[in-house]
Design a protein around this nucleic acid. Structure first.
Length: 423
RNA sequence: GGUGAGGUGGGUGAGUGGCUUAAACCACCAGUUUGCUAAACUGACGAACGGGAAACUGUUCCGGGGGUUCGAAUCCCCCCCUCACCGCCA
């Protein structure tokens, strides 16, 4: 959620930056300012009346104490009248605040000025590519066929147990998953991230804190008896660690990493492109999260982006880096890089990581602040990225590394798997 | 699930109707002293929002919501959460 004070102060800039998303920034900002002005007028009116009432009660107290009961009783009448007037005023102010909140909730984050204009994924800017397409023989198989051939992932069994999108990993397939998780966690540790094992169920407050609620309510699995939500990403618990917190400047930057299964209902997205591991209801992901000082956040975004690339390089995967355009960026992000790995048999790019700077969009909601050098509280900036999400990495590794004798395990993973070939 | 206790500022924790502009201690911050660090001393120090060029000033906030009262952290009602013990159980 954008900060109203910031919109007021930097109206033109906010409007311009919103326009990068293809929105009518000017009108949006004008609407906010108009409502804001109305609200403030009402608030001033209410507060001065409250002040008057407070003075009165003080006087009444004095009068009673000095034994002037009748004079006190007389003032009570005036006090009662003010109280009556306040009722409607307070209700008005409350309504105004609600209206403002509702309005602000509909406005996405202001893109960084470096974000390219554009509406669709076609307008994303390809920043770089690494590696090259593997040279596979003509009989290369998609990963779901490889999974069946070597009996390492069973999609049908998952359907029996739960439903589509809940695969069962078996034997070397399960070990391979575990190896990747441990590899990613160890790498994050080496890069200075503190490992976190958070709860997989969160309450509604946490959902609101990172913005999954109320907008994406339908995307989360909800246990209604206890009113808890299965996390769609570790971002939710790990970022909410800092909800309603005032940090000391010295504690920043905070760097956390966590592995969790992620649960997504993915309501409404069915079809051919969800085949195999491409889109699941439950999958494993290692997430990295940083809470930083505002002036550092864009430098940190580059650092995180580079870190994720390093993982892909160690796995020997051909990938590209996209700078998302305004229209394709998530609602809460100010700047996002997507990493896509090449899936050799499907012959397409698969998104496997998304690294974003949210500036104060999340921390405003979370009330995550730090005390700056002047001793004043200031909203921190939050960032996160997948490092990495497993399924599409697994898909790409299976497809790209297939040989007539089996699937070669990347060298960096062998210490974790204990085998160098899936066959 | 049962019974009991409790939720106060960054933390510990006092506070049973107006003197609370929330004590005290700790932490954080600034300064003094000091080879450095530490310690000691001094000072400042809750948050959010509004008004003001600024100095400054107003309002709200003691888990959440309602109520009593001229006036509520304090009294009453409902809800939520935490802790302890018991029961059940990995």
């Amino acid at each position: 959620m954008l900060q109203i004070a910031n919109i007021r102060k930097n109206a033109t800039e906010v409007a311009e930056r919103l326009s990068i998303r293809g929105l009518d920034g000017k009108t949006l900002v004008a609407n906010v300012l108009e409502l804001d002005e109305k609200n403030r007028a009402k608030r001033t009116e209410m507060e001065s009346l409250q002040s008057k009432g407070n003075q009165l009660t003080g006087q009444i107290g004095e009068l009673y104490k000095s034994g002037q009961k009748e004079a006190g009783d007389a003032l009570k009448l005036a006090s009662a009248e003010i109280k009556e007037q306040l009722k409607t005023l307070e209700a008005d102010v409350e309504l105004g605040d609600q209206a403002m909140l509702q309005l602000l909730l509909t406005i996405p984050n202001t893109p960084s000025t470096e974000v390219p204009l554009g509406k669709t994924p076609d307008d994303n800017l390809e920043v770089s590519q690494w590696g090259s397409k593997p040279d596979l023989s003509s009989q290369s198989l998609p990963h779901w066929e490889l999974a069946a051939k070597y009996d390492i992932i069973d999609f049908e069994l998952g359907v029996k147990l739960t439903g589509a999108g809940f695969p069962v990993y078996k034997g070397k397939g399960a070990i391979f998953q575990r190896a990747l998780i441990q590899f990613f966690l160890n790498e994050a540790g080496k890069a200075g991230y503190t490992e976190i094992q958070p709860p997989l169920l969160v309450n509604a407050d946490s959902g609101y804190g990172t913005g999954q609620l109320p907008d994406k309510e339908g995307q989360m699995y909800h246990s209604t008896v206890d009113d808890l939500y299965l996390i769609p990403t570790a971002e939710v618990p790990i970022t909410n660690l800092y909800r309603d917190v005032i940090l000391n400047e010295g504690q920043l930057p905070i760097k956390n990493a966590g592995y969790t299964p992620c649960f997504r209902r993915e309501a409404g997205s069915y079809g051919a492109h969800v085949r195999g591991l491409n889109r699941l209801h439950q999958f494993d992901k290692i997430e990295i999260v940083q809470i930083v000082k505002p002036e550092n956040s864009y430098g940190v975004l580059e650092e995180m982006q580079t870190y994720v690339q390093g993982l892909l390089q160690k796995l020997g995967l051909h990938y590209r880096v996209l700078l998302l355009c305004g229209g394709d960026m998530g609602f809460t992000s100010a700047k996002t890089y997507d990493m896509e790995v090449w899936s050799a048999a499907q012959e397409k790019w698969l998104e496997c990581s998304s690294v974003s700077n949210f500036e104060t969009f999340q921390t405003n909601r979370l009330k995550c602040r730090f005390r700056n050098t002047e001793g004043k509280t200031e909203l921190a900036h939050s960032l996160n990225g997948s490092a990495l999400a497993l399924p599409r990495i697994v898909a790409a590794l299976l497809e790209n590394n297939q040989t007539p004798d089996g699937i070669k395990v990347p060298e960096v993973l062998v210490p974790y798997t204990g085998f160098d070939m899936i066959n």
